[in-house]
Every structure is written in structure tokens, then in C-alpha cells.
């Protein structure tokens, strides 16, 4: 038979090994990946090992549910700190999320192109400002306003939970707005056309077609903003008054983050260990919120593509 194969070039590898460059790249990626995972695990372990002993020594219940924080007489109850953190960030999210959404819709679909470009530039600029500047802003502008309310109600003038929440709102707005705008802008224009062609108004197509299609991006923006709010220390410390009492809007409040940073420098012994304990609580708190938020995100998204 005359069908012998004449081959000028072969497609099999000469040696068994893949190209060395590929192998090296694979190893580098593996190392980077491992480094990320390992450091997360190490941080978690460190938090637990440094925070848990103090909690055990003080007693978990006394620590988490205790209402008095007075290191001088070994009272280490952080319930006021936990509740203040929850209220301040919760309030900030409740105000900031709808406001940011409205702003993002305005910037993407209502404002004139030129106006939107300028405003968006400013918003992105704001997103990068260090938090201490927001603290200053709050101390100069917001705290005095709250003073007026306090005087009117016959309360002593002081930093307050309300001021802290407002500063947090202002601080996380730019983040949520700019991420939401980016995500709304990726929604295909067709969705808008289809919706209009079905007889919707402009607002209906924004609210029912465009925003749902941009939802996953918007939620990432919210997660980022919330993360920033929970972890914020400096700006809050400058306006919150920082007394470790149960949260009330117009009274001073100490958040978990502030609880650690305020006393860190001069703490020692059990006091210092208790601050590690607060760190652990904050860590768990942030974990819970992230898991909650991302599960809400997944849940709402199972009818569309990712």
C-alpha cells in the first residue's frame, strides 16, 4: 500500500516536560495563591489565639453581654461597643445605600453627559480621601449641628452616635456611587430599548430593567462601602464622643474599632488581652456581615446570568 506517512513537522512534544516557562509560571501562580490563602488562615488563627484567652478569662458572657467597660476595676463588658457599632454602621448603610443608588441613577441616566462626567470625577476623587479628613469635616460641620439639637433638647453637648453615623454615610457614599455607576454603565443599552419598546416609561425601564441587570455590581459596591464603614476608626473617633455607654442617637458612643485604638497605647496585662478580645469580636462581626451580604447577593441573582 502506498499510503506511507511523510511528515515534515510533528505535533508531539520532543521531551516529556512542558515548556519550562509554563512550568515556572504555574509555580509562581501557585505560590501567590497559597500565600493569599495561608495569610488569611494565619490571620484568623492569630486573632483567635490572641483574643480567645482574655474572653475565656473574663468569661464570654461577662465580656459580650457586660454593660460596663472600666479597665481600672477590671470591668470588661463590651455590649455597649457591640451595639454602638451595629447601630452606627446599620444606620449609615440604611441612609447611604438608597442615597447612593439615587445618585448613581442620576449620574448614569438623568444628568447631562458633561455634568455627569464632572460630578463622577469629583465622586471618585472623594472616594480616595483619607478618613481623617472626613473626621475633620465631621468635627467642623456636623458635630456643631448636633450640638444645636442637643442644646435644644437640654442635653449636654458632645460627640454622638448620630454624628458618627453621618460621617460614615458621607464617607462610604462615594465608594458605593462609583462602583454602582460603573456597574450600571455595563448594562447593555438594548435592555433600555426593549423596555421602552414594551411601553415602559423611562423611570420604569431604569428601575425594572437596568438596575436589576446591574444588581450584582451594585451589591459589590455596597459590600465595599459597608466594609469600609465597619472598619473605620479615625473618622469615627473624632466625632463620636467615645464614652462606652449603651447607644443612644444623641449621646456619645464608642465603637468596637475605637475601643481598641483609644486604649491601646497604655494598656497592659488583662486590659491589653481584652482589647485583643474586642479585635476578635470585630473580626467575627465583619465575617458575619460579609457572608450575609454575599448570600443575599447570590439569592437575588439565581434567575439571571452572573
Amino acid at each position: 500500500m502506498e499510503n506511507s506517512i511523510t511528515r515534515t513537522s510533528s505535533i508531539t512534544r520532543k521531551r516529556k516536560l512542558k515548556k519550562p516557562v509554563e512550568t515556572i509560571m504555574n509555580v509562581i501562580f501557585l505560590i501567590c495563591g497559597l500565600a493569599a490563602v495561608v495569610s488569611v488562615i494565619l490571620i484568623s488563627l492569630y486573632m483567635v489565639f490572641s483574643g480567645a484567652p482574655a474572653i475565656a478569662k473574663i468569661g464570654p458572657l461577662k465580656f459580650l453581654a457586660g454593660q460596663i467597660w472600666n479597665p481600672e476595676v477590671n470591668d470588661f463588658g463590651i455590649l455597649p461597643l457591640i451595639l454602638s457599632s451595629v447601630t452606627a454602621t446599620g444606620l449609615a448603610i440604611l441612609i447611604a445605600v438608597p442615597a447612593a443608588l439615587c445618585a448613581a441613577i442620576f449620574l448614569t441616566h438623568i444628568a447631562k453627559k458633561r455634568v455627569a462626567t464632572v460630578l463622577l470625577f469629583l465622586v471618585e476623587l472623594l472616594a480616595g480621601i483619607p478618613s481623617v479628613v472626613y473626621g475633620l469635616l465631621g468635627a467642623i460641620l456636623i458635630v456643631p449641628l448636633v450640638f444645636k439639637a442637643q442644646t435644644a433638647l437640654g442635653m449636654p453637648m458632645s460627640g454622638s452616635l448620630l454624628s458618627a453615623s453621618i460621617v460614615l454615610v458621607i464617607m462610604i457614599l462615594p465608594t458605593i456611587i462609583s462602583v454602582s455607576v460603573a456597574s450600571i454603565n455595563t448594562v447593555p443599552k438594548q435592555y433600555n430599548d426593549v423596555s421602552l419598546a414594551l411601553g415602559s416609561s423611562k423611570m420604569q425601564s431604569i428601575m425594572r430593567a437596568i438596575i436589576p441587570a446591574a444588581k450584582s455590581g451594585i451589591v459589590s459596591g455596597i459590600v465595599l462601602g459597608v466594609g469600609r464603614a465597619i472598619g473605620e476608626t479615625m473618622a469615627v473617633m473624632m466625632v463620636a464622643g467615645n464614652a462606652p455607654i449603651m447607644p443612644e442617637l444623641l449621646k456619645p458612643a464608642r465603637l468596637l474599632t475605637v475601643g481598641i485604638s483609644m486604649e491601646w497605647a497604655y494598656s497592659s496585662g488583662l486590659h491589653r488581652d481584652a482589647l485583643y478580645g474586642i479585635g476578635l469580636v470585630l473580626f467575627v462581626f465583619i465575617m458575619i456581615i460579609n457572608i450575609l451580604l454575599s448570600s443575599i447577593l447570590k439569592k437575588g441573582n439565581n434567575t439571571g446570568n452572573k
Binding site: Q190, Y191, V194, A209, A213, T303, N305
Partner: peptide
């Protein structure tokens, strides 16, 4: 009503 060139269902 209108049907467009490329199929464009909403992500729902």
C-alpha cells in the same frame, strides 16, 4: 410592539 435584531432577553 418591536422585536430587535439580536435576541435580547433580560437577565431574568
Amino acid at each position: 410592539g418591536m422585536v430587535f435584531q439580536s435576541p435580547n432577553p433580560f437577565p431574568m
